[in-house]
Design a protein around this nucleic acid. Structure first.
Length: 784
DNA sequence: CGGATCGAC
DNA sequence: CTATGTCGATCCG
């Protein structure tokens, strides 16, 4: 929502400086003036660990700025001139490819959470109120009403400070189910204007109404109507921005904030006029730090940004200055697109101080469990696990470890995370870790393409490995590999140290630091069948039976054994779980009180809406659904898997069981829509490769088939090539959005929105690439 | 690759 | 009385 009105704690040399909103303290009737507000906040904050940390961070930013300025001072005029030429070349190209043909709308509910609460409890209307978690802190968008704002109460301000600013403040706890229900109603309206709209969060969305406008007079009228319908349906108001691209639309929606809209017509002059005095901070993607750095260069507006483009190209990374250039030209994405594949997934929790190692392990495991569930929903597996720790001084530390196999289950993740945690605990000992937050992240997902590649290389490696005798390696086995990260080494050392202390996890593979010699470039597939092994805990690499080990020890062993290029599938078996959660329909509010000409029209549309619109199964919240998926849902032809492989459930309601002969399916068969997978198998399905006889850790039939294929030494390369490039990648359905769940003490919190942002700025710099099949979407006829 | 940082809500 | 969140992406070394 309105991020520019957030409180910003910006400690500087003198102390606190506050940036209030643009319209700082409009009404002086009641409430506090800026100075008082700052003073109160200052008093509440000063001396806290949090503040200390903020100061420290601020210092770091200052150092960065200093470094940058130093760099700047060393630039020569000729360097800058040269850069100028380069940048202008790009600018010209960008200008030439400017696309003004789309009509993009950004819609933003006004003070959404607060508005919902006030609607449902009118008593709150006359009182300063805010939404958030008890007296701890409250967060999430514009959570305060206008009364409260007069006291300086802002989004992203801790509750206890807000209370000091405004002792009568009502703090209403978050009620996500409610917001979700309202959001659903709003989205139903959105989908009529753009069935392919992109929700950013519960209260915000991008729409491309270009097509819709074909039967309309004006964009403004259409958007006004849409907002009106939203208000009729939900009693809540929304603001909107209309512009030729996403970046501009977003900025516009903020312009006439409460209950208003703003349009930038699709004409170049209008865009440049708008951009001219726009403060860079208002642009999505430019945050506190970037603003400060640019300000150090004398840049505050987009015009400044444009004028300094040559300098910026020398001081910032390519992506950064490209982004800046786009902004200063008023360019942004003209197509509303989902993000590409997700790159990481994480979960973290804050709690009151925790210093017992035992508890920490326990929490860690819980986090892994949660994460594993999330991963499972999207059918993802990754190779690097990152542990995030924040101590009571607010110092954040992350430690990562990437293993050679893919992990996705609780046990797998925990076995890695646990080691990292142990290393940290041991590192700090005899002092305990005094934590206030812990998080676990997984990344290094195998992309669809990589999945194939990985499995090739893994099997290549495997076949070689099978032949190669595993050599016993000393601890620092990394030397042998080409890129031994020093951290890793120390990490292993720490791990070993941990082991010697005999702490906690007795089952770690202490002396078994077995490791294969690094596998060099493989030339061809040989003796693939050699990989076949018993399904029990026999290491497929060193062929040693490990049956008395527990799973994590076993995984670890394999990790060590493989070092770098492992098999893509390990011997784990995954539980198939319902991807489609049970859906329960929320009763829809019917609306009344229409009073003007629009009334009839709106009523009809709302009716139509109810009858025809199949909302994106919103019970799962923050869905991001693309056009194809949408269509598929309408046809009840739901792609169930995030991967390209066409496993399509003809009717998601039918509960197919996987054929028992599944293990014998060939790749060809997998290409035909066949028995559905994850969403419909309620029981564990065991995939055992009929060739190598190893259980495959996947619930994805196609993946499994591919494995079998590889195992059979069939031409997977060919298959890769013939893989239909026209296929739209099936995007994973995003769920999530959880309620706050208290973990410990009163500080527990669980995340809220986690919709991914679109790359607002991303327009292909050299937009020459003939984007496959999208051409039909772009109308280029608009140049003047 | 690992770690810190940024920006979003 | 205390008391400042969670997530994904990107940058930098």
């Amino acid at each position: 929502m309105d991020h520019q009105e957030e409180q910003e704690i910006a400690p500087s040399n003198e102390g606190f400086q506050f940036r209030m909103g643009l319209n700082d303290n409009k009404a002086g009737m009641e409430g506090l003036d800026k100075e008082k507000i700052n003073k109160i906040i200052m008093e509440a904050t000063k001396g806290s660990k949090f503040y200390d940390n903020e100061l420290k961070k601020d210092q770091q930013v200052n150092q960065r700025i200093e470094k940058m300025l130093q760099q700047k001072s060393q630039l020569t005029i000729s360097q800058i001139k040269k850069a100028q030429v380069q940048v202008d070349k790009l600018a010209l190209e960008l200008e030439r490819s400017r696309d003004l043909s789309r009509v993009i709308v950004h819609v933003d509910m006004d003070a959404f959470y607060a508005a919902v609460e006030m609607r449902d409890n009118p008593e709150l209307k006359d009182k300063p109120m805010a939404v958030g978690s008890m007296s701890m802190l409250f967060f999430f968008q514009s959570t305060s009403n206008y009364l409260a704002r007069r006291f300086g109460v802002r989004a992203a301000m801790p509750g206890f400070i807000a209370k000091r600013l405004c002792p009568n403040l009502y703090i209403v706890p978050l009620n996500f189910d409610k917001y979700r229900a309202v959001s659903k109603e709003v989205r139903e309206i959105f989908s009529e204007y753009d069935p392919n709209f992109l929700p950013l969060s519960l209260d915000e969305a991008y729409l491309d109404i270009t097509d819709h406008l074909e039967e309309r007079t004006s964009a403004e009228e259409a958007v006004r109507e849409m907002r009106f319908r939203i208000e009729q349906k939900t009693t809540l108001t929304a603001s909107a921005g209309i512009a030729p691209n996403m970046m501009l639309a977003k900025v516009c929606s903020d312009k006439n904030k409460p209950n208003g809209q703003y349009i930038i017509p699709h004409d170049r002059q209008a865009v440049t006029d708008f951009i001219k005095d726009l403060p860079i901070r208002k642009v999505p993607g430019i945050g506190k730090v970037t603003e400060k750095m640019l300000r150090a260069l004398g840049i505050t507006t987009c015009t400044d940004l444009y004028q300094q483009r040559a300098l910026l190209s020398l001081l910032f990374s390519d992506t950064s200055w490209h982004n800046f250039l786009h902004i200063s030209l008023g360019l942004g994405s003209t197509r509303i697109e989902r993000d590409g594949e997700r790159k990481s997934m994480s979960t973290e929790r804050t709690f009151s101080e925790m210093s017992s190692a035992e508890e920490q392990y326990e929490l860690c495991q819980q986090l892994c469990k949660d994460l594993a569930e999330d991963l499972n929903k999207e059918g993802l597996k990754g190779r690097t696990v990152t542990l995030k720790l924040k101590n009571i001084k607010f110092e954040v530390k992350t430690r990562a470890s990437t293993v050679s196999y893919v992990v996705s289950t609780e046990d797998e993740i925990f076995s890695v995370a646990k080691e990292i945690l142990k290393a940290e605990i041991d590192l700090a000992s005899p002092e305990p870790l005094r934590l206030r937050l812990m998080g676990v992240r997984i990344s290094g997902f195998l992309s669809e393409n990589e999945k194939h590649q990985k499995s090739i290389t893994s099997f290549l490696s495997l076949s070689k490995a099978t032949k190669t005798k595993c050599s016993e390696m000393a601890d620092k086995s990394d030397q042998a590999t080409q890129a031994p990260a020093p951290q890793r080494e120390s990490f292993f050392n720490q791990k070993r140290a941990a082991r010697q202390q005999g702490l906690e996890q007795g089952s770690t593979s202490s002396e078994q630091n077995v490791k294969c010699a690094p596998i060099e470039q493989q030339k061809e597939i040989t003796e693939v069948d050699q990989i076949c092994e018993e399904p029990d805990f026999t290491c497929p690499i060193c062929m040693m039976k490990q049956s008395d080990w527990d799973l994590e020890a076993f995984n670890k062993h394999i990790d060590q054994c493989l070092s770098k290029s492992p098999p893509s599938d390990n011997l784990q078996m995954t539980k198939c779980e319902d991807v489609l959660a049970a859906s329960n329909d929320k009763a829809q509010k019917s609306n009344e009180g229409f009073s003007d000409d629009l009334r009839k029209d709106v009523h009809i549309k709302n009716l139509k809406n109810k009858m025809e619109t199949v909302p994106p199964s919103d019970d799962l919240d923050d869905f991001v659904i693309d056009k194809n998926t949408m269509r598929a849902i309408h046809n009840q032809d739901v792609p169930l898997n995030p991967c390209k492989d066409e496993i399509i459930c003809k009717n998601p309601m039918e509960n197919h069981q996987l054929e028992s002969d599944v293990g014998l399916k060939t790749t060809d068969e997998s290409k035909a829509p066949s028995a559905p997978s994850s969403s419909v198998c309620h029981e564990e399905t065991i995939f055992i490769c009929p060739v190598c006889n190893i259980r495959q850790d996947t619930s994805n039939l196609a993946v499994f088939n591919r494995h079998v294929d590889v195992c059979l030494n069939k031409g997977i390369l060919e298959e890769l090539q013939e893989h239909n490039p026209n296929q739209d990648p099936r995007r994973p359905i995003k769920t999530d959005l959880r309620n706050g769940t208290t973990v410990r003490g009163n500080a527990g919190n669980r995340s809220t929105a986690r919709t991914k942002r679109p790359r607002a700025m991303q327009q292909n710099p050299t937009s020459k690439k003939p984007k496959t099949n999208r051409s039909s979407l772009t109308i280029d006829a608009f140049f003047k």
